[in-house]
Simulated assay, not measured.
Amino acid sequence: MQTTRELLDLIQLEQMSDKVFLGKNGYMGSPNIFGGQLVAQALNAAIRSVSPERICHSLHAYFILPGNLKLPVIYEVEHIKEGGSFTVCDIVAKQDNTSIFVMTASFHKQEEGYEHQVDMPEVPEPEMLTKWLDIPLLEDAEKLKKIKNFINAERPVEMRTCFQPDYSRSEINNHNPVWFRFREFPQQLEWIAVQQLIAYASDYNILGTALRTHGDRASYANTHVASLDHSIWFHHTSDIGDWLLFDLVSPVAASVRGFATGRIFNRSGKLVASVAQEGLLRPV
């Protein structure tokens, strides 16, 4: 999978009944289903069950079991609130009649109100950057076949890291701004399609930011890493045909869990979405 059109085809589910959908899987270098695929496909199911004048403003998901690439995924949607302004629905993803992923998504009719946002951080422009992954991860790739497969996998998202961490210094490397863009991006996409693309890409780099905070002693070679939950808040509509900045930071790790948040800005500095994730960082 190399293009945005292929990604959109992957996210688009087959409708089995009014609120039941069937999804296929894409290979991203891992023996398990990529978490961003589950989030994006669950959002696709939710969007198609909700009145089109209501737009998703937030979603909150839990990864329950690793997804099997060889099996299709069934998504079941249940509406739990139909209010005057908001619709809330639960989405359950199943394989072999076993739940592997659950998500709640909230939709809101468009209204005008107060507005403010933080400024986008000052970082190098993406054209000045050439690398995505830092050196320790590349070294891990020589040790672990699964990491090497992940690094070398074809993907529809191009990424460039703004700052390579210096593990020889005592400062915590918990800030990780990454530029990303979608390859061969088709023009004139509706915002609901853009949201699903953002949902897919939001699972890249975020838990790795928590791991790289301890990069002087922790790596993918000696740590069991797995996403536990994932949340997204959508703030502004935006064209995403250009580079987007995923400004990531990990404020804490505790009890073998790492936590990281991210803010997604477009090139002009508009805050498009915010993301949060907690994941397992268990030394092995």
Score class of each variant (00 low, 15 high):
Gln2Glu: 15
Thr4Arg: 04
Thr4Ser: 15
Glu6Asn: 11
Leu7Phe: 09
Ile11Thr: 04
Leu13Cys: 13
Glu14Pro: 00
Gln15Ala: 12
Met16Arg: 13
Phe21Tyr: 15
Leu22Ile: 03
Lys24Ile: 04
Tyr27Met: 02
Gly29Phe: 10
Gly29Arg: 07
Ile33Cys: 06
Phe34Thr: 02
Gln37Met: 09
Gln37Glu: 14
Ala42Asn: 05
Arg48Cys: 10
Ser49Asn: 12
Glu53Ser: 12
Glu53His: 14
Glu53Val: 02
Arg54Cys: 06
Ile55Thr: 15
Tyr62Phe: 14
Ile64Asn: 02
Ile64Asp: 03
Leu65Ser: 06
Gly67Val: 03
Asn68Gln: 13
Asn68Phe: 01
Pro72Leu: 06
Glu76Arg: 14
Val77Arg: 02
Ile80Thr: 15
Gly84Lys: 15
Ser85Lys: 14
Thr87Ala: 10
Cys89His: 03
Val92Lys: 13
Gln95Ser: 08
Asp96Glu: 14
Asn97Tyr: 10
Ser99Met: 03
Phe101Trp: 04
Thr104Trp: 03
Ala105Ile: 02
Phe107Ala: 06
Lys109Gly: 10
Gln110Arg: 13
Glu112Lys: 14
Glu112Gly: 01
Glu112Phe: 07
Tyr114His: 08
Glu115Asp: 14
Glu115Leu: 05
His116Tyr: 14
Gln117His: 12
Val118Arg: 05
Pro121Ser: 08
Pro121Trp: 02
Glu122Asp: 13
Glu122Cys: 03
Pro124Gln: 06
Lys131Thr: 11
Asp140Phe: 01
Asp140Ser: 15
Asp140Arg: 00
Leu144Tyr: 00
Lys146Thr: 14
Ile147Met: 12
Asn152Gly: 13
Asn152Met: 13
Glu154Val: 04
Glu158Asp: 15
Met159Asn: 11
Thr161Ile: 10
Gln164Lys: 09
Gln164Trp: 01
Tyr167Arg: 00
Ser168Asn: 14
Ser168Gly: 06
Glu171Asn: 13
Asn173Gly: 02
Asn174Arg: 11
His175Leu: 10
His175Val: 12
Asn176Trp: 06
Val178Pro: 01
Val178Arg: 01
Gln188Thr: 02
Gln188Ala: 14
Gln195Glu: 10
Gln195Tyr: 09
Gln195Val: 03
Leu197Cys: 11
Tyr200Ile: 05
Ala201Leu: 08
Asp203Thr: 05
Asp203Lys: 08
Tyr204His: 10
Asn205Arg: 00
Ile206Thr: 09
Gly208Val: 00
Gly215Ile: 05
Ser219Gln: 04
Asn222Val: 05
Asn222Gln: 10
Asn222Lys: 08
His224Ser: 12
His235Phe: 06
His236Cys: 12
Asp239Cys: 02
Ile240Thr: 04
Ile240Trp: 01
Leu244Cys: 09
Phe246Cys: 02
Leu248Ala: 10
Val249Ile: 13
Val252Gly: 06
Val256Gly: 00
Arg257His: 10
Phe259Pro: 00
Ala260His: 03
Phe265Pro: 01
Gly269Gln: 09
Lys270Met: 13
Leu271Gln: 07
Val272Pro: 03
Ala273Lys: 04
Ser274Tyr: 10
Gln277Asn: 08
